[in-house]
């Protein structure tokens, strides 16, 4: 969670609100923030730490592990209309990539800005070639874009 906190300004710049969720109580969140997170990131994590004690949220988002009684690593990107645009779920031993999360946010924001007139091919980052779906592009993607 501190990986996101350390680059929180980049999320703010993209106008993204972060909500972190675990089954820990708000009391444990407080102590974790004070005893550990604040020593990893100046001022601690700047976004809300939500408490999902019974795994109720984890269940509807498909991330609750009944056996372990925890919410596994799951990330959900929700657009301003409340629509889920991206999700990624990992088992506990491997962490997520903040770079990839930011890349996806930028790509989805670009698509939204163009009203879907421009889409982002594999590995797209700002400034790279976008595709403009339409009859003229059918069978001709090779002319404008190739995998790296």
């Amino acid at each position: 969670m501190t990986a996101v906190a350390a680059r929180y300004q980049e999320f703010k710049d993209l106008d993204v609100e972060v909500l972190a969720v675990s089954v820990d109580s708000v009391f444990v969140h407080k102590i974790w923030q004070e005893e550990e997170l604040s020593k990893m990131v100046d001022g601690g994590v700047p976004y809300p730490l939500l408490s999902d004690g019974a795994g109720s949220l984890g269940k509807i988002y498909g991330v609750y592990d009944e056996g372990a009684g925890v919410d596994v690593r799951g990330r959900f990107l929700i657009d301003p209309d409340g629509v889920v645009q991206a999700m990624e779920i990992l088992t506990p031993p491997v962490g997520r990539s903040v770079d990839e999360t930011l890349r996806q946010i930028q790509a989805f924001q670009h698509v939204r800005k163009t009203g879907g007139a421009e889409v982002c091919p594999s590995g797209w980052t700002p400034g790279k070639t976008v595709l403009k779906p339409g009859p003229d592009l059918v069978g001709k993607v090779w002319k404008v874009w190739k995998p790296e």
Partner: peptide, 14 residues
């Protein structure tokens, strides 16, 4: 949070 982009991050525990 409607009207904003939201990133929900579930994680196993503090």
């Amino acid at each position: 949070y409607l009207g904003k982009w939201v990133l929900i991050c579930f994680y196993p525990g503090d």
